[in-house]
Structure formats: C-alpha cells, structure tokens
Design a protein around this nucleic acid. Structure first.
Lengths: 196, 196
DNA sequence: ACCTGAACACCGTTCAAGT
DNA sequence: ACCTGAACACCGTTCAAGT
C-alpha cells in the first residue's frame, strides 16, 4: 500500500471509530466519509462493506479476547475463567451499539467480513465452556453456539437504552443457569446410585 | 371514518401484514404501498409511523396474550402459568422478524405507538412473576422489567436465522434460572435458622 | 373527506474521469 | 496507484393539487 493510501486508511478508520462509537454500527457511510474529509468512494474502497469497516474496528478487541481466553485457561478456575471471559465479551460487543446484531448474522454468513472473527470468538468461548463442563461446574446440555447466542443476547440488551442498566444483573441471572453447583453435580454422579 | 376509507385501511393493513411477515418489520413503506396499489402518502396517513402500523398488526396477538395471562392466573400452577405465557409471548414477538427490537425501544419511549402495548405486556408478565415469587417457585431478585428483557432477548435470538433453532432450548435454559426449586426455597426460609 | 403525484433530502453502489 | 464527483436507484417526509 502506498504511503498516502496508508495514511488515508488510518485516518478514515479513526474517524469511523469515533462516529460509530457515538451513532452506532448503522451510522451513515456518507457521514463517516464527510467527517473524514474524504470522498465516499474512497471510504468504500478502503472498506468495501460496513462489515469490513467494523471488522477493522473490532479486531483489536477481539484479538485481546482471544489472548485472554488462552490466559484464563491456566490462570483461573474453570468457573471464574468462563464468567470473566463472557463478561468481557459482552462489554466488548457493547463498545459499538448495534454491532452484536451484525455479529449474530455474520456467524452464519461465510461471506461476511466479520465471519472469521465470530467463529474465533465462539471457539474461544467453547474451549472455556468445555473445561468448565469437564470439571462439573457448567451444565452439559449446552454447546459453544448456545453460549455465543446467550452472550450475544445479553450484549443486545446492552444496546437497548431502557434495558442497558439491567444487563449486569441479568448477566448474573443467565450465568446462574449455565453454572452448576459442583457439589450437586458430584451428588448426581456419585450419590443415590439407584436413582435413574 | 368514511366507508371507502375504512375499506382502504383494512386492505392496506392486510397487505402490510403479508409483506412484514415475509420481509420483517423494516420492510419498505413504499413497497407496502406499492403492493397494496395505493399511494405512499395514503399508507402514511392511515399509519403515520412504522410503529403505528405494527401496533395495528400486533394488537390482536397482544390482546390474546393479556386475556391468556388472566386465565392462567387461576387455571394453572404459578410455575406453569409463567412458563406457558412467556413461551407464547416469545412466539408472538417472533411472528414478525425485527418487531422485538422496536418493542424494547418502545417500552422506554412514551411517544411510540407501541408504548402502551409494551407496558401492558410487561404488566401481565409482572403479575405472573409476582404470583410465582409469592409461592416460592421463582427467584425474587428479578422484577417485571427483567423478565420483559429476558423474554425479549430470547425473541431477538429467534430473529437471527442462524440461532433461531436454538431458541426453544435456550428458553428452557433461561427458565431454569428464573424458576427455583420450591423445596430448596422452603429450606432457605425454614431450615438453618441461625444462618444469616 | 379522502387520495396522490411530485419535490425534497437522504441513503449505498458504481464508474468514468482526473491526479 | 490512488482518489473523487456525478449518476443511479432507492428510502421516508411533506404538501399542494385533485376528486
């Protein structure tokens, strides 16, 4: 990429981040180009679709989440790791209002520029879930897609102004459904052997 | 209203229902008018906003849900009543893709044509929740707004093509977080009196 | 009263023409 | 190579003019 193009790219991306942070993921591409003092066609050549633009904006946060998932796998208990990572995932998705809707659509659309990132996020969550399940602290009748869906639905609530204040609380409610008491899980497998 | 206007109103509403059922709540108003063989301005005078149009489309289902909530209050156990009503609520919201996003926005916007309907739905759910809580079968740290948010988030998942097949399962997961085992609830209030 | 075409200010897409 | 103005087909809003 030529030096002037690189500069244009970075400048446009920075402006787009500011506009989308305040207006949400559905902000007008024309408006972003205007605010960046650049032709609309220029913006669209750097980022041919809205998804491509958002992918560039979200990449940093997503990469951090992937690294964090790896770190948590050894540094924390299975339960704490899962809860902490999901909390960060929801917070990351809520950085840009409306982005989680695009993510949920992208997970099923291989053409989307966000597809790979979403698959990576789901895989990271799946690993943390599997460890928790293996240790008996997470229910075993859900998989990584279910987890991705539940986390996404919480992030979506964060996009709704009237419900956003409830998200922290509802996060705890949903987590209580995912996590199982290890004692009772133990009881299920070791006690009352005649119980079917 | 004049007879010809009434006829126009009903015809437009029927066509709008068909278009929105297939294209979702964000269907083009212009397209609805075209399909109804009516001027765009005519559509907009009958239904000045998208919310007004959706309110008319949803009214029947919402009224049924309100009636059903009353009936369930005496015909079913608190637990079954709450679960059954919430299941119907989610199914109703999923009749038109995208409508739940407008509902969540409308609950906090008194100007919206959907506001009254949403408040009514929340009130009906709140009554069923309160009864379940009083009987010790629902956790007491959530209120009607939390319930509305959780049900809405499940309905939103139903709008996502890739996640819709999971909604029934995830409904059960979320319900397991809301419902409490009456035995253990009993244990909390009667056993271990020294426990604070 | 009720309806509607047309003008308006937007949107994202596309491409020929400029530097 | 990289950029951009302009044309295009859309959108919802508004209103003067018709029946």
């Amino acid at each position: 990429m030529r030096a002037d193009a690189r500069k244009n790219h970075d400048h446009v991306l920075a402006v787009a981040g500011a506009v989308i942070a305040e207006q949400g993921a559905e902000a007008s591409m024309r408006d972003i180009a205007r605010r960046a003092d650049v032709g609309l066609a220029t913006l669209l050549r750097h980022f041919p679709t809205r998804e491509a633009l958002l992918e560039a904006l979200l990449r940093t946060g997503f990469d951090e989440l992937t690294v964090k998932a790896d770190a948590l796998e050894t540094s924390s208990s299975p339960e704490d790791a899962l809860v902490s990572w999901l909390r960060d995932f929801v917070a990351c998705a809520d950085n840009y209002r409306g982005v989680v809707a695009l993510m949920m659509s992208a997970i099923g659309d291989k053409q989307s520029a966000l597809h790979a990132s979403c698959v990576t996020m789901r895989a990271a969550g799946t690993r943390l879930l599997a460890r928790a399940q293996a240790e008996g602290v997470a229910r075993t009748d859900i998989d990584g897609t279910d987890l991705f869906a539940l986390a996404g639905s919480l992030a979506w609530l964060g996009d709704q102004p009237s419900l956003a204040p409830r998200v922290d609380h509802l996060f705890g409610v949903v987590m209580s459904a995912i996590l199982t008491d290890p004692a009772s899980a133990d009881a299920r497998t070791t006690a009352a052997p005649g119980n079917r």
